[in-house]
Simulated scan of single mutants.
Amino acid sequence: MTHLMPKTQPFVILGMPRTGTHYLEELLNAHPSVLSNGELLNTYDTNWPDTNRLRCSNLELLELAYLRYPVQKGKAHATHIGCKINQPQFLERPGFFEELARWPCLKAMLVVRRNTLESLRSLVQARQSGEWLKYGSDNGSAPPPQVALTIELCEAYFKAADDFHRQVVDSFAPENLLSIDYENLLDDPAGCMEAVQTYLGTSMHPCSHRTVLQRQEVRTLEQTVLNFDELKCHFSGGKHERFFETARGGLSCNGRIHVRPCSFP
């Protein structure tokens, strides 16, 4: 380390694509003492004025994120500084995850969507349409396109999600990892944010339910995956069979916010 550690608490938001990490960040940034600067490893993220930052070494990137970070309007005195990184971005930076996990006093938040098939469906929809986010002013926009998913793509994505979740759990001490259900974040954002603020050690700040970010897809998997029955038949009897159940999200909701997931299948 070539810099003195600042008097701020570093944090990172982790997750597979399309699991609500952007929504969580928006809720976090509503707190006057919290500043999360978007996707550190995304070249096109406008939170970062240095478009050449990805040429830096892994350590230099982390120093940029937590020591020389861009200060947003109204957040000059933020006490908790963070960013978010999705699983595919780690694949483009060998060794970056390990460097991140070693950052002093780092607190991680892992957002998990109970039904990984919904995460994949949403990712493919976004890639096909080019529409990654929906804001309140876009209420008249067309719904995302229906998609067909190959068995091979589903198997690879399910394995990537399982491996990534396990890697996160194994890399952070229990007191430095908070796991948040995507479904709980949607159903009870105030309760989730209370747990997050307790975990980060910030002052309690009311959670605003009014955010400009909107859900893009509200239809079921049966309505949006053209070959749903084919996939359901293939995965029947296996460990991923639950993703094809008709219940909301493919799993029952227990209403709990998990401080740390014990294991992932």
Rank of each mutant, 00 (worst) to 15 (best):
N139A: 09
E152I: 05
G255S: 03
Q72N: 12
G255P: 01
G130A: 10
L62H: 04
F172A: 02
M109V: 09
A173T: 15
S57C: 07
P32N: 05
Q216V: 05
E118L: 06
M16P: 05
Q9P: 08
D170T: 12
V225L: 02
L54A: 03
M109T: 09
L251F: 15
R53I: 04
P206M: 09
E131S: 13
S203N: 14
V34E: 01
G249K: 08
V259A: 07
E194V: 07
G201S: 12
P17Q: 06
W103F: 13
Y199P: 09
T224V: 10
C56D: 11
L200S: 10
P189N: 04
Y69M: 02
N42M: 07
E217W: 07
R113V: 09
D229R: 08
K7S: 14
L185A: 11
H209G: 15
W48C: 00
R55V: 01
A195H: 15
R248M: 04
L153I: 01
I13L: 09
N47Y: 15
A30K: 13
Y69E: 07
E99P: 10
I81N: 02
Q125P: 01
K159A: 09
S179N: 10
G255D: 00
K84G: 03
L28Y: 06
S208G: 11
L40I: 06
I13R: 01
K239C: 03
A190D: 14
P17L: 00
L133Y: 07
L185P: 04
A148C: 06
W132M: 03
N254E: 07
D170M: 12
E152Q: 08
C154P: 01
Q128E: 07
L91I: 07
N176W: 06
M5P: 15
R210D: 15
A195E: 12
L40M: 12
P189Y: 04
F158R: 03
E99K: 13
K107S: 06
A160N: 11
S263N: 05
F264V: 08
Q146H: 08
T220W: 06
E26R: 15
P145W: 02
N86C: 09
P206K: 03
N47P: 01
R127M: 13
P6H: 05
E245H: 14
H234N: 04
A190M: 13
N86V: 14
L41T: 02
H3R: 14
L54M: 00
K7I: 08
E222N: 06
W103P: 08
Q128A: 14
N176S: 14
